[in-house]
């Protein structure tokens, strides 16, 4: 009998085995390959020489001048900054649109909720590229939005609203693509929310805003944070929307990585940028872990 706990421990370890193997094979090994490639030397026509080199990381911050001296160069940092900024904007837009939607669904009778959730997820069944192309038809010259303006003569044939190929178009594209990732976790939080607490707030003369900020927000915080994270991470590496809707006028992290592996044939540098991307994600995940610890202690009250 004494070794029963031991057996249980063994069983637990064995049961975790498949999950650990999957994480090991599909996550750790690729990350290790990427990390090691980022410290190798680039071969001129793609591939790597197995020689240690920190060049890829030096290149991120410095420009090598002709006399081989190094000068601090903000080029790549600007690209990183732009990608982070755009991902944050997309995240905020998703939150502003997604929260009311999730609230609306959570307030529906139980049987109708599933139908609404289904409607939210249906766009996921179509390829992201196709859905992004659809926005070109909507926002473009003579597109769905412009046509009424032309009919009414508000827009001359030579004029355009200029919606396409702009940061606005990128933001619309990212928000549209990732909004289900915001709605679903917030809905999951709101669904569990005890609405009698909201009523209690009202009974105790709290204003609508106070109810919202002191009761609803704290209780749905885990969902909000999870949603923000789920939107922020893929937005950071997105390249379809900046390319197709933004006209690719400014490089994004995702496009930059793609460029290094294809045209520029600089695999180590591509890997180094991907590592930077990964570092950002890890930092945000750590912030999440911290924030969700905070919200747990709140639930205890």
């Amino acid at each position: 009998m004494a070794n029963l706990p031991e057996n249980a421990a063994l069983r637990r370890t064995l049961a975790l085995g498949p999950a650990l193997a999957i994480i090991g094979i599909f996550m750790l090994i690729p990350v290790i390959i990427m990390a090691s490639y980022s410290f190798l030397e680039a071969k001129s026509f793609g591939g790597v020489n197995w020689v240690f080199s920190g060049d890829a990381y030096v290149q991120l911050f410095y420009e090598r001048m002709l006399d081989d001296s190094l000068r601090l160069s903000p080029g790549y940092l600007i690209i990183i900054g732009r990608s982070v900024a755009l991902a944050l904007v997309a995240m905020v837009c998703c939150l502003l649109v997604g929260f009311p939607v999730a609230w609306f669904i959570a307030r529906q009778p139980l049987r109708q909720r599933n139908m609404w959730i289904l409607l939210i997820t249906i766009p996921f069944w179509t390829n992201q590229l196709v859905r992004t192309f659809a926005w070109i038809i909507i926002l473009g010259r003579n597109g769905v939005i412009e046509v009424p303006f032309r009919w009414t003569g508000l827009l001359a044939p030579e004029q355009t609203l200029g919606l396409m190929y702009s940061n606005f178009a990128i933001t619309v594209g990212l928000t549209y693509t990732f909004i289900p990732l915001m709605v679903l976790p917030i809905y999951a939080s709101l669904e569990k929310l005890d609405f009698s607490l909201v009523e209690a707030g009202a009974d105790l003369y709290s204003s609508r805003w106070e109810t919202f900020s002191n009761i609803i927000i704290p209780l749905s915080k885990p969902g909000i944070i999870a949603g923000c994270l789920l939107v922020f991470i893929p937005s950071l590496g997105a390249f379809i929307q900046p390319d197709l809707l933004g006209g690719g006028k400014n490089l994004m992290l995702g496009t930059l990585v793609q460029f290094q592996f294809s045209t520029a044939r600089n695999w180590p540098f591509g890997s180094a940028i991907a590592m930077i991307l990964l570092a950002f994600v890890v930092v945000f995940l750590m912030l999440y872990a911290r924030a969700s610890r905070g919200s747990k202690s709140l639930e205890v009250h």
Binding site: G140, R141, T160, L244, G247, G248, K249
Partner: peptide
């Protein structure tokens, strides 16, 4: 040239030319 460029893209050139973008 950049300020005058609407898009850097190697796809959909025919679409952009035909719709007048």
């Amino acid at each position: 040239q950049k300020p005058y460029v609407m898009a850097y893209s190697s796809e959909g050139m025919n679409d952009r030319l035909i719709n007048g973008d």
